[in-house]
């Protein structure tokens, strides 16, 4: 598979609030975040800390209420709904905890759907589907519907779909939340290989510290902000950049 250039992530002063019966809940409160192109960042935090919200904002699923979000040099704040759809189609690959496969379609068709949204020619998309299914080791499951697949297999199909249009940024939201240990290991290995094999940036939200510790960088969402938990040496080694503050301070990478 041809590698693509990863997309950098630059977030400044991001605020996000939800209205609930109990009142307004502040999820993100002046969050700053930098992820270099091709990086692998794990977001950790308690439930409700804002991992999914942050991933939604980064992926253009949800507009930023205030602050700026720049992905691969593109400011999402100025994009229309149609432009955002194009951004998601061309730049981002999503992997959800619930897999997000369409039950009416087979594994191959789920992957092909992403290609068809990008108007890839039928012959090319069939070849792409074959290639991706082989990459996730599910070539023999192409005609199976999601209900006929195990949780781990579904998530591998979802990863294949996320890669269908050669994204420069892959966002995974609790991708192993519904998987057993064996499947978790396989899915994590597959995800971890993406930056190296596909050149894309990977941002993974999880509450599983064991998985997060395997990431190049680990950021904890606390109080609406992202706090660096990675050892400075490791950060320097991964990013190849000048060291910043010690773990616990606001992430600037």
């Amino acid at each position: 598979m041809a590698a693509v250039a990863g997309a950098s992530v630059e977030i400044r002063d991001l605020h996000h609030r939800f209205a609930s019966r109990a009142g307004v809940v502040t999820v993100l409160d002046g969050l700053d975040l930098d992820v270099t192109a091709g990086g692998y960042v794990a977001l950790v935090g308690a439930s409700g800390a804002g991992k999914s919200t942050l991933l939604s904002v980064i992926g253009g699923l949800e507009p930023a209420q205030s602050g700026s979000v720049v992905i691969g040099g593109q400011d999402l704040g100025g994009l229309s709904r149609t432009d955002l759809a194009t951004f998601r189609r061309e730049t981002v690959g999503f992997v959800f905890q619930h897999f997000g496969l369409l039950e009416a379609l087979t594994a191959a068709e789920n992957i092909e759907l992403a290609c068809s949204l990008a108007r890839v020619a039928p012959a090319a998309r069939r070849a792409k589907v074959r290639e991706l299914l082989e990459a996730v080791d599910l070539a023999d499951r192409a005609r199976h519907r999601p209900v006929q697949l195990s949780g781990g297999e579904r998530q591998r199909v979802a990863i294949a779909r996320a890669l269908a249009n050669g994204p420069s940024l892959v966002l995974a939201d609790e991708p192993t939340g519904n998987l057993d240990d064996a499947s978790t290991a396989r899915v994590v290995a597959l995800l971890e290989s993406l930056p190296a094999e596909h050149g894309c940036t990977l941002v993974l939200g999880t509450h599983d510290l064991a998985i997060a510790e395997r990431a190049s960088r680990r950021l904890r969402l606390r109080g609406g902000r992202a706090v660096e938990e990675t050892a400075p040496a490791a950060v320097n080694a991964i990013a190849g950049a000048a060291p910043t503050g010690p773990p616990g301070q606001q992430a600037r990478r």
């Binding site: 992926g59 699923l61 709904r81 149609t82 759809a85 194009t86 998601r88 189609r89 061309e90 981002v92 999503f94 959800f96 619930h98 997000g100 496969l101 369409l102 039950e103 759907l113 992403a114 949204l117 990008a118 779909r161 996320a162 269908a164 249009n165």
Partner: peptide
């Protein structure tokens, strides 16, 4: 609703 959201997440436009 979730399925529609997934369609949009993978790049479907409103008109799709």
């Amino acid at each position: 609703r979730r399925e529609i959201g997934v369609l949009k997440a993978i790049g479907a436009r409103d008109r799709d």
